[in-house]
Design a protein around this nucleic acid. Structure first.
Length: 812
RNA sequence: GCGGGCGUGGCGGAAUGGCAGACGCGCUGGAUUUAGGUUCCAGUGUCCAAGUGACGUAAGAGUUCAAGUCUCUUCGUCCGCACCA
């Protein structure tokens, strides 16, 4: 079979007959199958794209054959940094390069033979899409979920530009010029995802997602139950608020620490300390967050000269600044209890600060300082002495609450989502600033705020759009007076946080989507994409859906009911494919030589889907060989004669057929494609075995099984299955056929061979009736001479029987 | 550093707590073929005294009649860490 010509023939036929067109009338059995859309940064599909889209497409085809009305769209996540950087390097405009890349990739996606319905395609960088991304921003703003405030960015003082974290090297320098990167505050927009922290955490339990992904989101959200305590500062009207999970240790506070970026720092620092504090702030602005949170890194800090008053005992404690305290977590201030916290202990030891025990270990508990265990009770804590750790925490917080110097507080690690980007290639933020009216959202009828084409986006310290007078200067939508636009663009994660809502209604010019329609098609039933999105894209999308639900635009709580992560295809050397390593394998040459079916099945057979693994070209030859073996058998089966014989051999062959159907169905459903294909290989091995050296075959039975085998092969090798299906004399299309269902009765065996263990070691095998009970099996087994020899006259103390599989005799 | 994975033959990988290594690659042997990067069949974890044998799932301990699987410790490795998408 010439795979290449054959595949082209069927792709043409599929397109002409609109085989994959979604039926909008049958929403009762709808199934929304979605792969994460691709980013057109390179013109060609790489192995990773193939690995995401090929197997998932097979799953979608399998579901279609099971009778589901499958909605399977594809599109492009087209805004983003790489196109802009490419433009800075080459002078090619991001819009031109992106649209060119999309055209090429779309052609390739059609050629992998996937069942996408291209009628529903979307491209996020086109005005008809980003109009609604901007609309989303306006809704967030109107519902109090978008807020403008100061936030730090990475700043390269030499390039005079904002850098993405990706552009900052491991040593904290700029990737372009190797200058040390600093942090600078800019006023930027945030989405208040933290408002949904509790629900985002709780609803994880409802999702059919990989447990590890849910765990990662739980940790990312980082709920922590504790107390907020108010410390007055000497000579300052504004108090210092600290968050702590250990209010029980309040009597042991010997100093306090502010993050170097904390707004109080400038107010409270005394003249003598100012120089050291300023110096320290500069140093801290150069350390990365990962470094700052490292528990092994040496703690540093400096005294501000100011003192705080501990509300539980009125004691004066010095206030330091230190970079192990982050402005972005909690209140940006901590109380330090060196006796009962590792980090505080290290810091106090280094700077000679007092260390005072307030928790003693319970009976028999080793309590050398720092003693951080909860297995203790309060000491040196006045009226609270003797209380347990948890009891003390509650009692002290309740007491502070009464005095209005503290309260119970739940804190999250999750931070609000910074969506402003000082870049060109993104959706402009639809906000206008007017001297008279202030911050004004652009009204819906004026959307989209179009991204101008002729913009100078070479880095020079400003957002590129700020330099475009035609874009920046506008009229205020409220008063009509002169006003200016927000010069920033939206984080591309905003575009990808709602695209799955747009697909089913992608041509709607009136609204982002029709609520009633979307409520029928959503949520996405199966979402497939990389695990690297666990904490960001997947969390942002969940937040969007919850926010839109509360605004009344959708009636469901979660975007993705069921989630699967594909693994990563590594280079042949076992390392991640990268140009610099020179281990990149391109799918193209293999697809051109063997066809897309062979390539797809190779990806599905040679790896565990969720694990991935190193590339191995031999596997492609193996699949090619297997498919040739399939074709030879199907062709030869056409000539087979004979029917009516149904003896032991036929019964066995038929059992293999039904076992295969059962296993392939179950495994494919769970994305365990490699084992599903292994079972199909076994079926063909059994078919070959049955027909070899057998002059009295049941040709009718064989042909019947071949028919089923083509059906169960269809999702994995769609083009070839169409060809074989036609060859067998059937009507187009194999994908309009019902998926075979196995007959459990054909699987039942009267007798089973079981393994017999003596003290856990296999000593014999015996054949028993499959439905025999434990007592009966025990008698048969003990009568076996090998077993008797192994028991060797010892006493049987226990007998365990696992039906049809194994018996274990415990002797002493 | 923190968080989350993973670790099984020469290789890719299988194993609801129940006979470790399915299926495939590679290798060995046989048959077919003028020929083969063909096809078909058989064998293939390690060790030895070759068996109704011993050992064997990164290392060490534990729970269990039974552990690759559950628990703890250690080592190695990969991914994410909020401006790559």
């Amino acid at each position: 079979m010439d795979m290449i010509t054959m595949e082209q023939k069927w792709r043409k036929r599929w397109e002409e007959t609109n085989l994959y067109s979604f039926d909008r009338t049958r929403t009762d059995k709808k199934l929304y199958c979605l792969e994460m859309f691709s980013y057109p940064s390179a013109a060609k599909l790489h192995a990773g794209h193939w690995y995401n889209y090929g197997p998932t497409d097979s799953w979608a085809r399998f579901k279609r054959m099971q009778g589901y009305n499958v909605f399977h769209p594809m599109g492009f996540d087209a805004f983003g940094l790489p196109a802009e950087n490419f433009a800075i390097k080459t002078g090619i405009h991001p819009k031109d390069s992106t649209l060119q890349n999309i055209a090429t990739m779309e052609g390739q996606l059609r050629n992998i033979g996937a069942s996408f319905d291209w009628e529903y395609e979307l491209v996020t960088c086109l005005p008809e899409y980003y109009k609604w991304t901007q609309w989303m921003f306006v809704q967030m703003y109107k519902h109090g979920l978008a807020e403008r405030r100061e936030a730090p960015v990475n700043w390269c003082p030499s390039c005079n530009t904002v850098l993405a974290n990706e552009q900052v090297m491991g040593d904290g320098t700029c990737e372009r010029c190797h200058t040390i990167v600093e942090r600078r505050n800019l006023t930027q927009w945030f989405f208040k995802i933290t408002k949904y922290a509790d629900e985002l955490l709780a609803d994880l339990d409802k999702l059919d997602w990989p447990e590890k992904t849910k765990q990662m989101q739980r940790n990312w959200i980082g709920k922590s139950v504790g107390s907020e305590v108010v410390f007055k500062i000497e000579g300052c009207d504004e108090p210092m608020r600290v968050f702590t999970t250990r209010a029980d240790t309040l009597f042991g506070v010997t100093y306090a620490v502010l993050a170097p970026e904390h707004p109080l720092v400038d107010i409270i620092t005394t003249e003598e300390c100012r120089e050291a504090v300023e110096e320290y702030k500069v140093m801290a602005s150069r350390a990365s967050e990962i470094d700052r949170l490292s528990t092994t890194r040496e703690k540093t800090g400096t005294f501000t000269g100011a003192y705080a008053i501990n509300p539980v005992n009125g004691r004066k404690v010095p206030i330091y600044i230190a970079d192990y305290v982050l402005a972005s977590y909690g209140t940006g201030a901590v109380m330090a209890v060196p006796a009962h916290d590792e980090r505080d202990f290290a810091f106090a030891t280094k700077y000679n600060l007092p260390i005072e025990r307030v928790i003693a270990g319970n009976e028999g508990v080793e309590d050398e300082l720092p003693f951080c265990s909860h297995d203790g009770h309060l000491v040196n804590s006045q009226q609270f002495d003797g209380m347990g750790v948890d009891e003390g925490r509650e009692a002290i917080t309740a007491w502070l609450k009464e005095k209005e110097e503290g309260d119970f507080k739940v804190n999250f690690r999750l931070r609000d989502w910074l969506v402003s980007r000082q870049r060109y290639w993104g959706a402009p933020i639809p906000i206008v600033y007017c001297d008279k009216c202030g911050t004004v959202p652009v009204p819906e009828e004026q959307l989209p705020v179009e991204l101008p084409y002729d913009v100078d986006f070479t880095p020079d310290g400003q957002s590129p759009l700020k330099k475009h007078a035609g874009f920046m200067n506008c009229k205020c939508p409220v008063c009509g007076g002169d006003a200016t636009r927000d010069p920033d663009t939206l984080d591309t994660f905003v575009c990808s946080s709602w695209y799955f809502l747009r697909y089913p209604d992608n041509k709607n010019a009136e609204k982002p989507f029709d609520t009633e329609w979307i409520n029928q098609i959503l949520p996405v039933d199966k979402y497939v994409g990389g695990a690297e999105h666990a904490c960001m894209h997947l969390l942002y999308a969940r937040f969007f859906v919850k926010a839109l639900r509360d605004m009344g635009y959708v009636n469901f709580d979660e975007p993705f009911k069921s989630l699967v992560h594909q693994g990563i295809i590594l280079g042949p050397d076992g390392y991640r494919m990268s140009k610099s390593r020179g281990n990149v394998v391109s799918p193209d040459e293999f697809v051109e030589k063997y066809g897309s079916d062979v390539f797809r099945m190779y990806l599905m057979f040679c790896f565990s889907y969720v694990e991935g693994g190193p590339w191995n070209t031999d596997g492609i030859l193996a699949i090619n060989r297997f498919l040739e073996r399939v074709e030879r058998f199907v062709v030869s089966s056409l000539e087979m004669k004979g029917e009516g014989v149904y003896e032991k051999a036929e019964k066995e062959l038929d059992a293999v057929r039904h076992y295969t159907i059962a296993q392939v169905t179950a495994d494919t459903d769970k994305f365990q494609f490699n084992t599903a294909i292994a079972r199909i290989m076994e079926l063909f091995n059994a078919l070959y075995k049955y027909t070899a050296n057998n002059d009295n075959i049941n040709g009718k039975l064989v042909q019947d099984i071949v028919r089923d085998s083509v059906l169960i092969l269809a999702p994995f090798v769609p083009h070839m299955a169409e060809e074989l299906w036609e060859m067998l004399g059937n009507e187009y299309s194999v994908f309009n056929q019902a998926w075979p269902v196995h007959d459990p009765a054909k699987l039942v065996r009267d007798e089973s061979e079981i393994a017999v263990q003596v003290n856990g070691k296999v000593r014999a095998r015996v054949v028993v009736r499959t439905d025999a009970e434990s007592d009966e099996v025990q008698q048969i087994v003990l009568a076996d001479e090998k077993v008797a020899a192994a028991i060797d006259g010892k006493n049987v103390v226990k007998f365990v029987y696992i039906k049809g599989r194994l018996a274990n005799i415990v002797v002493k």
